[in-house]
Design a protein around this nucleic acid. Structure first.
Lengths: 334, 334
DNA sequence: TCTCCTCGTTGAAACGATTCATTACCCTTC
DNA sequence: GAAGGGTAATGAATCGTTTCAACGAGGAGA
């Protein structure tokens, strides 16, 4: 059924080795033979079998990317950056969405191992250091995305989340707010923990400021809505006067609950700032202040490092850290 | 370097065939041998080589999915639905983002062909009927997503875009609007053309109603912003009194431009309705009316059909069409 | 005419898993 | 004790490609 290189060789009256050369090293082959082979390929509708190539080569020409949540525009932007860089190098990106579930993350890593991918980009969820070391040992470099490596045995491309958290809350404090709430979770996620740590630094620097931590279970719009309803259910006097959410999706959900169901005025009653500065941030009911990450650049950079390490496994791991940028809009004005 | 099944066999003191049986047909193997082999696998850190499996099996255990725009929440929801269904069947989904570029679409289809995927889900961009027929001939069934098949030689899962367009514009007309604008593009995209056709039907049914078509080049937020600025630049008397956009991303961008830069009141000056009902639609400056598509269900259904056809190639192609549902919010109220 | 090069082509080996016909072994049963 | 039957394990063949040592033809130089 399937047309193989052998059929092409027969049709063109040459050996299989020659067909392979036409495909992979055209300069080693005479022009007459090359056109004869190309014709045969076209006539038979031959398509290379990637599995056989990979088997022979010992590795695939794809790289794997596992993101925490493909519905989060931040990660789709990262993915797009990675794809841009990959396309330049003729490499394909296999995208896996762990959906913040450790078992899905593990399943994708298994898949990538079995596929013998060239390397893996991952925004890790659980504690998978062992897995990642193993991948490295297997010859597939690993680059952490959106999270700095704890030890220096792995490369990473991330944003300074602590600085971002500090900047966000310092901004809220500057506008006169004192009863700050941090909304985000799970705190097991490094990004969340770091942004919270930054927030705590900022609050500690101002004597009469206080910080309340509301830990949620996911970084999604619906979770934000849920947290917002909790706030709305409180006596108004018990509510914070400013909220910093761990990302923009939470902020969007929170905003829906506060403004539309709770009748809370933003920013008058409660100021709000998010993280990521996704495209939608400027289009929300009340345009959202946020910390911008260079998401596409993160993806590009990470893939570049990955390919460099794949080519030269002796390279020392690198940690690249970008600084987030404060974008002030109406939700935290005055 | 790499540990193969042969190393495992040696370590466990059995033949390679037996190791393979432990992995694939555990019931054919005695318990004693099974544990001995499992131990060897663990000790050596053996990982299956998928390329070799595929080569032998003649096909991979993945399916391909090409979406028009991975940044559009509608498509990430479709993708997630497909992944849900795939996970149940132990199949992996390779996600490709054509980014509305025909060459990227072609590149992903090439990749999927070479990978000998079990089948392909695609929301087609250019005219790729030949490619798809070829895939089918190669043994990989194809299911069109978000677009009905023109002929009945392919299966498809879609939404009735004509009905959706008609419903949207009929709703605008009911609220008293008469000078309707359709914003969307490129018109070469079937979904866009169909939604426009529906809009035209609705307008044709009301004597003094008129429809203006503003064709854009992409279905993105930034393109929506650009179109919005064009409207804002007009003399207010020359503006439409209602806009139907081909999807919600356009509507979000349009809203930003109209309200924030143009000082236009929505819905008072211009009513607005989008398509898809993405999560963000209810969180925009002015909550957005839209037509809801069962996006996740579309993905699940498409993948289900794909796997059925992969198992039994003689099955007749099926066309599943869902009906979109009108969701009225503030942007088109009264 | 003979030797030496070069260039183009050949064909067999190898990659690692699965499959299946064959073999080995043990237990019944007569 | 021999024959028969059932279960487990074996190992060679196979998938489709790439690689590389070997080969052959044709030309240049002596």
């Amino acid at each position: 059924m399937a047309v193989s290189i052998r059929d092409v060789a027969e049709r063109a009256g040459v050996s299989v080795g020659t067909v392979s050369n036409v495909l992979n090293k055209p300069d080693r082959v005479s022009e007459a033979v090359a056109t004869r082979v190309s014709d045969a390929i076209r006539e038979l509708g031959y398509v290379r079998n990637d599995a056989a190539r990979q088997l022979r080569a010992g590795r695939s020409s794809s790289v794997g990317l596992v993101v925490l949540d493909a519905r989060n525009p931040f990660f789709t932007d990262v993915a797009r950056g990675a794809e841009d860089a990959a396309a330049e190098h003729g490499v394909a990106v296999l995208l896996g969405d762990s959906d913040e579930k450790p078992e899905r993350e593990a399943a994708y890593l298994d898949l990538f191992e079995e596929q013998r991918v060239r390397g893996v980009l991952v925004s890790p969820l659980g504690d998978i250091r062992d897995r990642l070391q193993r991948l490295r040992a297997l010859g597939a470099p690993v680059v952490l995305v959106d999270r700095m490596a704890e030890d220096s045995s792995l490369s990473s491309v991330s944003v300074d989340d602590v600085a971002g958290g500090r900047t966000a809350v310092a901004h809220l404090l500057e506008t006169g707010r004192r009863r700050i709430a941090f909304v985000g979770g799970p705190l097991g996620l490094r990004q969340v923990a770091d942004r919270l740590a930054g927030a705590q630094h900022a609050v500690a620097a101002v004597p009469d400021a206080q910080l309340e931590v509301l830990e949620g279970s996911a970084l999604s719009v619906s979770e934000g809505r849920r947290m917002g309803e909790q706030l709305v259910a409180r006596d108004p006097a018990e509510r914070p006067d400013a909220v910093f959410t761990a990302n923009d999706l939470l902020a969007v959900g929170l905003l829906q609950a506060l403004v539309m169901r709770g009748g809370v005025r933003v920013p008058d009653d409660i100021a709000l700032i998010g993280f990521d500065d996704i495209d939608f941030a400027s289009a929300t009911i009340v345009p959202l202040s946020s910390l911008r990450q260079p998401s596409r650049l993160i993806g590009q950079t990470a893939l570049g490092i990955l390919l460099e390490e794949a080519d030269d496994p002796t390279l020392a791991p690198r940690q690249v850290v970008f600084q987030p940028e404060l974008v002030i809009r109406e939700s935290s004005a005055g």
